[in-house]
Design a binder for these strands. Structure first.
Lengths: 235, 235, 235, 235
DNA sequence: CATGAATGAGATTTCATTCAT
DNA sequence: AATGAATGAAATCTCATTCAT
């Protein structure tokens, strides 16, 4: 049912005009897939919204699945980059978590299509679907492992933890942004962070750079952001 | 796009023969929807698998959406009942959490279609989709509120907590049962419980195992504290 | 490009109504394929001419190729049967040849689609195409071998001879029936028989039952017609 | 359905570069038409194989049909020329026949596309299709008439004979070269010549190798060509 | 000459649903 | 209750051809 999901049409368009058309299609596809779902979205919907002729679609993508996969991959990349940037300056893991969640929620608010698109991926191209989460998980694992090494987070299976944290973010975003976007979100985020903080915190050593104005633990504080800015990034 | 999702045709067949046919269709539908997804599943697929003629379908269901909604509702009901039963005898909230997760994972293992079906609901009948999680959440809220009242769990927004816990279960089940079912699951469950326990535990009073403030029931009660090295974690 | 050409939809229609519809489609297909050629003929053309809805086609045939193959096979069978019948009573091989040619020409005159259909088969389903000629060849080989055994025809490779004779018939039919159907056909047939007769005739023994009132060669003469009435049949 | 098939754009490219491009397209077209058939072959296939851009096609040919017709005409011309050359030195009609067949078979072996292309012509441009055979027939008629005049071949309708002989060649080539190219071909050719020889031979006079009943002059070969080089030519 | 993007008509195929039996 | 034939709207995909550069 699922093709191996290769990138479509090696070597995209050559002329700038072609580049533009392709981009128009991708943008249109994102919104159409989000609104109608993969199956109910037709190529005609996409080209109509993109303002090009039906046949033009096939100049750039071999089929509906291809453009969908590309949309998903691109969404994931964008989101991961965003979270990476927003957490780059965080002083400790808990801040990374909170900031990451916050950025994620904001992204969802701006892209309500995200959920509908990603969830459809499960049925369109399983590999693409897994890839989406796997890449996030990799970022988490990296960051969490580091935090464990630093003694900031208790030793646990980092990948399991990653999926727990993704699950939390995912479900909260669904319930409080998609279903009922309201200002109460802040309280929900607090609850989540309360859970996460207690759930992760090693409680042993005062985390350097901790919220409680831990004495600037030299290097880590100053070096890490520079050396490993994407430490908390989920990409 | 989605119909209001009223309970369909609640008259139901009268004769036992009719009952049987209807059940055959529901069972077939569950597996077909799980395997091919809602859109790609055809009524013909369902009747074929059910061993009845195409036209027979419309004797029992007014349309494709109806049977799907019924399948989802029924799956949810079954799962909730199962979890309810399996956690009925638990001594405290943490045990409920662990037992609930375990039961859920087992159910997923036995019904790999669960995810694919429930996730499709988002696109077929949004109300049905929310209902599925809402009902779970209600149960959680009830239990968590009780546990907070008992001082067993820190005070937090119980609904937010509910969605966090569902998210954790959902993502772990997806990753370690759907994607890669293996014996390592036990370790994952431990990690999750580690997170949850520290995340929820009030750390204050020894949890009593019954609403009725039952006296510390030996092992369970007495053991946990010992196993809680981070008991003094910053709150 | 070519599928193995299996018969479509095992177990055709059950009801007589279905039988009729299927037959209507086959008949329509024969004429449409003949008129427009396989590629230019559309399913819609066929159903339109058959007087049924477009979708009905797919109740009986999985695709265009299937119905085409069935048309070809059926045409071949009909023609072979006809030739078999018309040559059943022939007194000797030469008569069989002449009678066979005559019947073939007449068939072509009544089914000008034959050529266009069979020739298309080469591109639609090679196996079906070969099968068409192979079956004819088998009949020829049987008859010619017998005639050689009888001493009526010189010893030669019977299959090669079969294809020579088919080629002669095919090309004459094309040139003098398809391209320019005229009464001069009789003269052409004479020329062909002149060639064939001299080309085959053993010249040695007077063929039994020969045109020249050869003396009744006992058994063969009397028995064969009775025992093997389809001796000259090409099926 | 078919256009009158006029020779297309007989201006032709002027620059040598253009000449080359045009030739590349024709060559590519021959193989593409042969492999995929006219309808399934796309202009893009042709330009791709030819190594030029899609638009370039329309610089040299007004449409798909034109290039196809040109391919067919060119194939016919090449083949006729080849046969003409190979039979130029033949001592008598039978030798011409044998040599012609042999050359034809060899050509088919080297151009397995020939059949597929020529047969498609029937559906693309009927005139072109007939022209292909008519031109061959003309050559035959000339040669056969001469042979009849010479008393070498019995008096028969020469055009009918021509089509018989073409049919023989066509079917043998199809069966023993296209379908199953094997060394047994020689035996098949013998059978065919056996048939043809007896079928044509006047049986009266020993065929003299020259029109003028010249006494068996060994090298007649060398003379005749000069005088009537196209005698055996089918063009 | 050459290019490659753009077009849109048209073909095949699927399938939920209806209906007569 | 059950059947299975019939329907036709809709979707995907192809491709000859045009056109601006």
């Amino acid at each position: 049912m699922n093709r191996p999901s290769t990138s479509p049409d090696r070597a995209g368009p050559v002329t700038p005009r072609g580049q533009r058309t392709r981009a128009k299609l991708l943008k249109a596809a994102e919104s159409v897939f989000g609104e109608k779902g993969y199956e109910r979205a037709s190529i005609a919907d996409i080209t109509r919204k993109g303002g090009v002729a039906l046949g033009t679609f096939y100049v750039y993508f071999p089929d509906k699945q291809s453009i969908f996969v590309e949309v998903v991959d691109e969404l994931g990349t964008r989101l991961r980059r965003l979270i990476g940037e927003s957490t780059a300056g965080c002083a400790n893991r808990m801040e990374v978590e909170r900031e990451g969640l916050r950025t994620f929620f904001q992204f969802v608010r701006q892209h309500p299509n995200l959920y509908r698109i990603v969830r459809q991926a499960e049925f369109v191209d399983e590999a693409c679907y897994r890839r989406y989460y796997d890449r996030f998980a990799k970022g988490y694992v990296r960051g969490l492992t580091q935090a464990m090494d630093d003694g900031e987070v208790r030793r646990m299976d980092p990948e399991a933890l990653a999926y727990c944290l993704m699950g939390i973010g995912d479900f909260l975003g669904m319930r409080w942004i998609l279903w009922e976007d309201n200002p109460g979100m802040e309280r929900v985020l607090d609850t989540a962070m309360n859970l996460i903080q207690h759930g992760l915190d090693s409680g042993a050593a005062p985390a350097r750079n901790s919220v409680k104005a831990a004495p600037a633990s030299k290097k880590k504080n100053t070096l890490r952001p520079a050396r490993r800015p994407a430490r908390g990034a989920r990409s």
